[in-house]
Simulated assay, not measured.
Amino acid sequence: MALSREDREKFLAEPLVAALAVDAGEDGRAPLTVPIWYQYEPGGDIWVMTARDSRKAKAIEAAGRFTLMVDRIEPTVRYVSVEGPVVESVPATREQLVEISARYLDPAKVDAYVDFAWKEHGEQMVIRMRPQRWISSDLGEA
Rank of each mutant, 00 (worst) to 15 (best):
E26K: 10
T67E: 14
L20S: 04
Y40P: 14
G25A: 09
E14F: 01
V80E: 11
R78G: 07
A30C: 05
V48C: 06
A51I: 05
S101C: 07
P131G: 07
A19Y: 03
P107K: 00
G84H: 04
F66M: 07
D115R: 12
F11D: 05
M125L: 06
D71M: 13
M1E: 12
A92S: 13
L3T: 11
E14I: 05
A51M: 08
R130K: 14
I60S: 14
A108M: 01
D138L: 09
Q39Y: 12
V80M: 09
A108W: 00
T67W: 00
P85E: 13
G28L: 05
S89L: 10
G122S: 02
D53A: 13
I73V: 15
A13Y: 07
Q39H: 14
I127G: 05
A117Y: 00
W37Y: 06
I127Q: 00
E120L: 06
A51W: 03
G84A: 10
Q124P: 01
I73Y: 05
R5M: 13
E120R: 09
E9T: 08
S81Y: 00
V80I: 11
Y104V: 10
P42Y: 07
Q132G: 12
M49I: 13
E95P: 01
E123W: 02
M69Y: 07
R78C: 15
M69L: 15
A59M: 05
E41W: 03
A62V: 06
V34F: 01
W37L: 10
E26M: 08
W47L: 08
W37D: 09
K109P: 01
D23T: 12
G84V: 06
W134Q: 09
E61C: 11
A21F: 04
A63F: 02
L32H: 01
R29N: 02
M49L: 14
D138C: 11
A92R: 05
A13I: 05
Q132W: 03
G84D: 03
P15Q: 07
Q39C: 14
V82N: 10
R72M: 12
D27V: 14
E9K: 10
E26C: 04
E141S: 12
T93N: 08
D106T: 03
R55P: 06
M1F: 08
V34L: 15
W37V: 10
S4E: 11
A21N: 04
E14N: 12
K10A: 15
V22F: 02
D53R: 10
R52H: 11
P42E: 05
V70M: 07
V87D: 09
Y38Q: 13
L16K: 10
D53L: 12
A62H: 04
D138K: 02
D23I: 12
V126K: 00
A59L: 05
A2F: 06
R103A: 11
A112I: 00
V110Y: 00
G28K: 06
E14G: 13
G122P: 01
R55V: 07
L105G: 03
A57D: 04
R133T: 15
D7W: 01
I60G: 12
A63C: 12
A57F: 03
A21D: 08
G28T: 08
P15D: 08
I60L: 13
V48L: 13
Y38K: 13
R103L: 07
Y79M: 14
P85Q: 06
E14S: 12
